[in-house]
Design a protein around this nucleic acid. Structure first.
Length: 116
RNA sequence: GCAAGAAAGUGAUAGAGUGGAGAGAUUUCCGACGUGAGGAAAGUCCGGGCUCCAUAGGGCAGGAUGCAAGCUAACGGCUUGUGGAGGCGACUCUAAGGAAAGUGCAACAGAAAUAUACCGCCCGAAUUUUUUGGGUAAGGGUGAAAAGGCGAGGUAAGAGCUCACCCGGUGAUAUGGCGACUUAUCACCGCUGUAAACCCCAUCCGGAGCAACACCUGAAUCGAAGAUUAAGCCGGCCCGGCACCUUCGGAGAUUGGUGGCUAGAGGCGUGUGGCGACAUACGUUCGAGAUAGAUUAUCAUCCGCGACAGAACCCGGCUUACGUGAUGCUUAA
């Protein structure tokens, strides 16, 4: 995995919700903000609306896999490091992979585009 | 009807964890095992281990349990039985002590709900349409429930008022059984239901939990000692004081790390004992232990088209959820 660590503290989540650049799609909500660390950091939120423990774990796994894929693509230039918070919505559990991937990529492009 | 069990497979690409080496939050390389989610991991309803705290002994309060004998580390669990209920049957269900210790409650209906008299029946009185005093609980009607049932005697009419038989209860004796209980005889009684109302009786129960607990690191801070003048502050300088630095000791925070942590009241097989739960001997077998939390993502193929659902200290149960396929024995037609 081309590296990121997990975002743990509630303070960090609140900072992203308040100041981060955001984009909403039907499957996910993405927040992004450049950080001063030398790694990317990722926090995933899957609330009770998503489902039970099985559903929530599945949503988190799908999103984590997509992000590691995304960080390796050409269009993500690199250079700076970012904090991400991805909120999983109920559809992220069972929808088609293509749709989730399209939504996720759109959300990330949009959020990162706002920063640049 | 019962019992016991399964909980899709294969391949490709990418990734994760674990071990080692470099590197030093990220990351690079190498290797191994083919390694890894449940029957309920769930609900957190009981019980136990383990840890810390409390504890002379006893009682009250509070809570739990409630047919018997057994099994078990223990249990509110399980086994085998007893009584009761259901089913043609295989079989299933049962929170099953006490209402004859006391208190409470019993809507509506009904005359009356633990004590009574609306209609009726009988006797008397007045009036002769009826009214009124008394007796009675056979009959009517109400209700979830109405004074044990039926027959005879008895009576003005009736009534366990008396008697025979039956039904039920309590007690005593005897029979069989370790026991719950069973069967029989005798005596007394005829008493509404409700204890998942209070209550009574018997038995049991200290509290909190792995975010327990132990250790390491040691921020601000306190005390003591020391050291440097080239270096901060106090006035121009020295001394001195404060701060800084070093050492020792105290106290130890949010955070962080390590242990606790997984081989166990374990699984499987065979033998022995037991109707059985289970016990025991021997043999054999095993390996998630994460810490924002891994145990996958995507595609292909296949078919029966994939239910309920995600370990968090560990075990024994209970309860609840669950698509499909399939096994054995038995019952009825």
């Amino acid at each position: 995995m081309s590296g990121f660590v997990s975002l743990k503290k509630n303070v960090d989540f609140r900072r992203l919700y308040r100041r981060g650049k955001t984009c909403v799609t039907s499957c996910v909500v993405a927040y992004a903000l450049p950080n001063r660390e030398n790694v990317h950091r990722l926090g995933i939120t899957a609330g009770k609306k998503v489902g039970g423990a099985v559903s929530r774990n599945r949503a988190k796994r799908r999103i984590r896999a997509l992000l590691s894929e995304f960080l390796k693509t050409e269009e993500f230039g690199g250079g700076r490091n970012f904090d991400f918070v991805i909120v999983a919505r109920a559809r992220a559990v069972n929808c088609e992979h293509d749709k989730l991937k399209r939504d996720f990529y759109n959300a990330m492009r949009d959020a990162l585009g706002q920063i640049k």
